[in-house]
């Protein structure tokens, strides 16, 4: 086997093993969106009326609306969690071990990105299996069309985490990332409310949501779940992904990046 693939297999294997052995993390990652679905969405069902907008062909309940957003939430939290583990890795030195491999650095970082995305995708499917038991089901082809959408969105959010991890010096600063990246990205998106609903309350809010790449990942997922393709959302998600990847590569570049400035 080629040296690149051997490394890829080992890095994904290590992430998978860590994930399986940290059962608490697995359960937490599932409980979070399920709580939103069961508690938050059930309460909101009465308060929020939804009109028929694509990809929906008929009236839907709020619980149905919120599921793609919660899939996005899993990807978002996991992307950030993996960057947290990168910062931890760097503090603990195992990131340095990874970077002394003679394989090109971009490949090593890409392996990490792919490893964390695969685990996120797995979690989304487990979440969807539980929502199916709860009564929210999609057509079988929706679950298949979802896979590429999840991969694109997962890589985009993972790359954001990777870029952030190169900028964060210490584990403690990660709380700031929670407050200033995860929460605004999630709340100022179409995960919880459709765009037209936002526009009713504030034009500014609407514009921010329409700009937020996370909104577009959620829409990409939403359309895919109904077997439809949203090209604009794909372009926007892909574009954001490319920017984050470029930033992450810059951040970990030994001659220029942020790792150099922090001296860690």
């Amino acid at each position: 086997m080629n040296a690149y693939l051997i490394a890829l297999k080992a890095i994904i294997g290590r992430e998978a093993f860590r994930f399986v052995s940290q059962r608490g993390r697995f359960i937490a990652a599932l409980v979070r969106p399920l709580l939103w679905l069961v508690v938050f969405a059930a309460g909101f069902r009465a308060a929020l009326g939804l009109s028929i907008t694509p990809p929906y062909a008929t009236y839907i309940t709020y619980e149905v609306y919120i599921v793609p957003g919660l899939c996005g939430m899993i990807l978002l939290f996991n992307g950030m969690q993996s960057s947290l583990s990168l910062v931890y890795d760097r503090e603990m030195g195992s990131m340095r071990l990874l970077l002394t491999s003679p394989l090109p650095r971009w490949w090593l970082l890409f392996c990490r990105l792919l490893a964390s995305t695969s685990i996120s995708v797995l979690q989304v499917y487990v979440f969807l299996a539980i929502t199916a038991l709860y009564g929210i089901r999609f057509a079988w082809y929706g679950y298949i069309a979802l896979l590429p959408a999840l991969l694109v969105a997962g890589v985009m959010l993972g790359a954001l985490g990777l870029a952030l991890s190169s900028a964060i010096k210490q584990l403690e600063n990660f709380a700031g990332v929670m407050n200033f990246v995860i929460f605004p990205m999630f709340f100022l998106s179409t995960a919880l409310y459709p765009l037209w609903k936002m526009a009713e309350s504030s034009e500014l809010l609407h514009d921010i949501c329409a700009f937020n790449p996370f909104s577009h990942s959620v829409e990409l997922i939403r359309f895919a779940l109904y077997g439809q393709f949203n090209g604009f959302a794909l372009i926007w998600t892909g574009l954001a992904g490319l920017i984050w990847v470029a930033l992450a590569l810059w951040g970990y570049d030994p001659a220029r990046g942020l790792v150099r400035r922090s001296g860690k």
């Binding site: 051997i6 890095i11 491999s101 003679p102 394989l103």
Partner: peptide, 12 residues
């Protein structure tokens, strides 16, 4: 050890 060997492209 196996993980490290893989990072150097060694397996089997």
């Amino acid at each position: 050890m196996t993980y490290f060997a893989a990072l150097h492209g060694l397996s089997g």
